[in-house]
Amino acid sequence: MLRVALIGTYVALFALVGVGVRALAEVGDHRGYRPAQPIEFSHRLHAGDTHIPCLYCHYGALRSPHAGIPAASVCMNCHGLLSRQTAEIEKLRESVLQVRPIEWVKVHNLPDFVHFDHSRHVHAGVACQNCHGAVEGMSRVEQRMPLTMGWCLNCHESRGVGDHGARTDCIRCHY
């Protein structure tokens, strides 16, 4: 009886450790994060069906470390002229009329101690889809890539970014 109890305890313990270790390994990996947004903006419609280039709205990616989310005025460039109205577009118009910014939920979050520079990567020819997945197919934006440090370094190693020593300089991203 005691032996069964003991074996059971060991099995439970191992299962717990396995789950715990697995959970720990996934700390920081937010794949599948697909939060609801204040406006149900569909990239599938805009970037996919209508083929609007990523950099039209996210122009910050060209010249700044932050790609940025476009101001409502960028949306109104088109939606100020279009006649088709939906409830979601109405929300956009409300925000513009009341001069109240839309509180988008950031999907791709890096910790504060990481400095990621979009402009360097865009300038180097890295496609947006590389890190953000096939956004043009997403009706709601979802994080597809792990965005963990190891995942970043894999790409840097395989593409041979920078001189060998500099590739793994901590201070490139952590300062």
Binding site: H30, P70, A71, V99, V105
Partner: peptide, 29 residues
Amino acid sequence: TLGAAGCSRATTQHALPFVTAPEDLTPGV
């Protein structure tokens, strides 16, 4: 603490863009 670490969730972060983007201001520059 080891047990507690596995149960962490990142807090929701929001991004608030401008309503009307100023011409000469690029966030980050």
